[in-house]
Design a protein around this nucleic acid. Structure first.
Length: 335
DNA sequence: TAGATTTGACCGGT
DNA sequence: ACCGGTCAAATCTA
């Protein structure tokens, strides 16, 4: 808390000083690069400060600028982050009322068996398991997860994972609430995030046989394209290469393609890269597909399967440890 | 040592 | 009373 306050003040002060520096460089004699450099640093400082305020780390109870697009269905107001420990008792009493009113949706995640994969693949968010329950009539226990940043950022997103009885290769993942946290991509900018944030989600830790395949080298570039707009999405948490709507027994379904083998193995062929077949097996024997009802999926902002609403949209990379002395050059700045 | 997981206890809804 | 969901202390792990 104290550290965050100091960091916030530091960022704001830095922004002010840089703005003053910039003012002194406004004469035509100074180079364009210098001015551009200063502008970027100023923006970076303010982004960091605003990001911290968005976390509500100081209990201001306000969001400076919503970082997540509003859902068409509004979420309950009372699910805002808890800022007072003394609220815990009352929170405990009202938890079930909240549960009923909270937005939720379910997706099915298929994982090919016999590959050492024992659970759904990483969905891009960091989750903390808080419970496991044997469900009546179900062969497999239900697992309960909440967002790792529940306490640090007041994020109330949760999910349940239930392995299907009929098809053990299918995991039904039910998401509740939406992410209000800022999560760094542990794939794309893992070299910039805090060491604690670099730790891979537990699902990935279970992928012992294929762990090397998931080893994100710094040189590995991950790109995804939204086929609807042709727009390139980068970085992507989910490495989705397709986002195709199809009709399925009268029910509209988003069919999200398999994890790109290009992600798992950059050396695999391009034909695999565009595969959408369920449980596509790549050279490492890993497959993945996701299905969710369109009507629900589109309502859930935090839905990890939503390309347009991936956490990346909420994440300004400048928020994460861009050192103030980071040597921006013209290429980086894009001028 | 901090953060994650496990697991029995507890709670509220039905 | 039963069941699903959550808590929290104990334990694990990097």
């Amino acid at each position: 808390m104290e550290l965050e306050q100091r960091t916030l003040i530091n960022e704001l002060n830095q922004g002010k000083e840089l703005a003053e520096q910039l003012r002194s460089y406004l004469n035509p004699a100074s180079s364009l690069e210098t001015r551009q450099f200063l502008i970027e640093k100023i923006l970076s400082s303010y982004d960091k400060a605003l990001s911290m305020l968005n976390w509500d780390a100081f209990g201001f109870g306000v969001q400076v600028q919503p970082t997540i697009l509003e859902s068409r269905h509004s979420f309950p107001k009372d699910t805002s982050p808890r800022t007072d420990v003394s609220d815990q008792d009352q929170d405990q009493k009202t938890v079930f009322k909240k549960r009923k009113t909270q937005e939720r949706f379910t997706e099915q995640v298929r994982v090919c068996l016999g590959t050492g994969v024992e659970g759904p693949l990483d969905d891009g968010y960091r989750w903390r398991k808080y419970g496991q329950k044997v469900i009546l009539g179900a062969n497999f226990p239900r697992e309960y997860y909440r967002c790792t940043h529940r306490h640090s950022q007041g994020c109330l997103a949760m999910k349940q994972v239930q392995r299907s009885d009929e098809d053990p290769s299918i995991f039904e993942v039910t998401y509740r609430g939406r992410h209000t946290c800022v999560q760094a991509s542990h794939f794309a900018i893992s070299n910039q995030v805090h060491p604690q944030q670099q730790k891979q989600p537990h699902f990935e830790e279970k992928l012992k046989p294929s762990k090397e395949a998931f080893n994100m080298g710094e040189e590995l570039q991950v790109k995804a394209k939204d086929l609807n707009t042709g727009e390139e999405i980068f970085p992507s948490f989910f490495f989705l290469d397709e986002f195709i709507e199809k009709e399925n027994e009268g029910e509209s379904t988003y069919f999200v393609g398999s994890i790109s083998p290009a992600f798992i193995s950059p050396a695999t062929s391009e034909s695999n890269y565009l595969s959408t077949s369920p449980c596509k097996v790549d050279s490492f024997g890993i497959g993945y597909d996701v299905q969710a009802p369109k009507s629900e999926l589109t309502d859930i902002i935090s839905a990890p399967t939503s390309v347009t609403n991936s956490p990346v949209d909420d994440l300004d990379i400048s928020n994460f440890n861009f050192d103030i002395n980071f040597p921006f050059d013209d290429n980086v700045l894009g001028y």
